[in-house]
């Protein structure tokens, strides 16, 4: 009898198809890319489409205030205000939480970050979410003072997420045109999967791309997708058309 793998749909049809149904249930996936590459939209799509199927989700924001996030969502077809009102999608500003905890919102000590992680976990448990997003861990790490603190924090985050039952997306920001998957190069170790939102040059124009770099437990090919952010339909994917010129360029990198 074949083992039916439990998956959590990504909210994007093409991606689900590529990964035989979605992210492995309970996995932690790093969504990495430069600013404006569609990370936040992708995570929102994940949450809202999940909520439609009855899976509750929570989105922790660190950089964008709530009103801005919801305003950006308004045009998208996947967005449904009712899902927020009914508590199926929760968007929580971590800065407000840390303020309530009496933390300095711009600078964290290891203890602060630890306390914040605990809260985050408690909130996820309380809401009983199946889907969790932290946007972004780069912004969280930015508030820590030393590389060592950042390492410790990320590993702690990894262990906290591992014991949680929900499927998690972490966004991570990398400077444009870089081919690193994470700012601190350790985020990738705590994640079961990495999606890289980048771009390729074609005749001088940049084409947005998405590549599945790693996805533990799913048979995926590392083919690139062309990614389109439609103002209505959100993130759309289609296999990237390649030419020999194009391969050459990739080789150069």
């Amino acid at each position: 009898m074949p083992i039916i793998k439990e998956v959590c749909s990504t909210g994007i049809e093409e991606l689900d198809m590529k990964m035989s149904g979605g992210y492995p249930l309970g996995s932690t996936v790093l969504v990495t890319g430069c600013s404006g590459s569609g990370k936040t939209t992708m995570c929102m799509q994940f949450l809202f489409n999940g909520a439609r199927k009855g899976e509750r989700g929570v989105f922790f924001t660190i950089t964008e205030p709530l009103f801005k996030l919801t305003k950006n969502l308004e045009g998208f077809a996947f967005y449904d205000k009712k899902l927020i009102e009914s508590g199926m999608v929760n968007i929580i500003d971590l800065r407000i939480i840390s303020e309530r905890l009496g933390l300095d919102t711009e600078k964290y000590t290891v203890e602060d970050a630890g306390a914040l992680l605990d809260i985050l976990k408690d909130i996820a448990d309380e809401l009983d979410v199946k889907r969790l997003v932290i946007d972004s861990i780069t912004a969280l790490c930015y508030r820590l003072q030393s590389p060592q603190m950042i390492r410790d924090f990320i590993f702690k985050l990894g262990t906290s997420l591992a014991v949680m039952k929900c499927t998690t997306l972490l966004t991570s920001e990398v400077p444009p045109q870089t081919f690193k998957f994470s700012q601190y190069e350790i985020e990738e170790f705590i994640s079961d999967g990495i999606l890289f939102l980048g771009d390729v040059k074609r005749k001088g124009d940049l084409i947005r791309t998405l590549q599945i770099i790693k996805m533990r437990g799913t048979a995926h090919s590392r083919t690139k997708f062309a990614l389109n952010i439609s103002t209505q339909r959100g993130i759309e994917l289609i296999p990237l058309l390649k030419s020999s010129e194009f391969e050459f360029e990739t080789l150069l990198k």
Partner: peptide, 15 residues
């Protein structure tokens, strides 16, 4: 946006 964005073109047609 540009005639090189062929993937977007296909997406747009299908949509």
């Amino acid at each position: 946006e540009s005639p090189v964005m062929l993937e977007n073109l296909i997406l747009e047609v299908m949509n």
